[in-house]
Amino acid sequence: MTPAGPGVRIEIRPASAAGAGAGPGWPATTGAVVVDGADACFVPRHPFLAGTTYAVRVDGTETLLHRAGIDTPATAHVVGIHPTCPTVPRNLLRCYVEFDRPMSEGFAARSVRLIEANGTELVDALLPTEPELWDGARRRLTVLLDPGRIKRGLVGHRAVGYPLPTGGDVRLVIDERMRDADGRPLRAAAQRSYRVGADERRPIDPTAWTVPPPPTGTGDDLVVRFDRPLDHALLGRCLRVLDPLGAPVPGRATPGPQDRSWRLSPARPWRAGEHRLVVDPVLEDLAGNSVTRVFDRELDRPGGRTPPPASVPFLLA
């Protein structure tokens, strides 16, 4: 019971719990009662939730009050789905879904799905993660394919096989049931289609990249081309260029189309001398292979522990 003004008792519960029971195990909603003259105002400790019905009992008389749901139009939409390349390896590990505004957690499991070309949902292909993997602003969702079905030798891989169908076509679908931070659905569903290609089991080898040196004295972009698409998110932070003195070259870095390249627009003209493209070893490709390790390394395969190159030199004449 929540005491109110003289002789008045106010008790509030969600209607769904109002008839469940009494006693200390079924507490009334916590809050404070502010008495203003003849009026008593209940201030909940946590704001009343939209779409919830409350049972308000005042001096033994109960009234149901419904707090309206969000009725403003849906505006949130998907602005990006990565990878962006048309063909992904069969052992694809990770996708990213980007939204134009902050979203709510707790809806991805029902809203994000992989669907085959014939319309069949690939059940159990995606790894349920609780809590979901969002960036700090809740605008980018990381979606993992079940690694237990990708890793060779594990029971999941042997018994159920790869999450993606060999040689087939799939769509990653984000339907309207996703909710934005205000609880509204998406304005429209979004999807991206992929052809499922061969496995990618090689470590990332920066020496296989092309790094054509830009002309000295110009502000031309440096464009690094990879031998395969790389992870979109990691590409955003794992590469940098050092000048001949070892100082980072300032500029604007952006992943290229399909994450097959990386472009650095320098903030100042290029200087002559040996530069180095430095690679953070955590950089991964679409299948989770990094510079330092492959996703699952065969122990009897030689060369698995060869130290990877930490950087790629290129000379500006």
């Binding site: 509030i12 519960r13 969600p14 769904s16 719990a17 469940a20 195990g25 079924w26 507490p27 009334a28 909603t29 916590t30 809050g31 909940p44 400790r45 946590h46 009343f48 939730l49 919830t52 409350y54 707790g106 809590p131």
Partner: peptide, 23 residues
């Protein structure tokens, strides 16, 4: 033992059990 712990917590916090995620 305690049944319906999420609904009981929801009663305290002013939310339906569906809006209570016990982490």
């Amino acid at each position: 033992d305690l049944d319906d712990v999420d609904a009981r917590i929801g009663s305290l916090l002013g939310s339906d059990a569906a809006d209570v995620a016990i982490r």
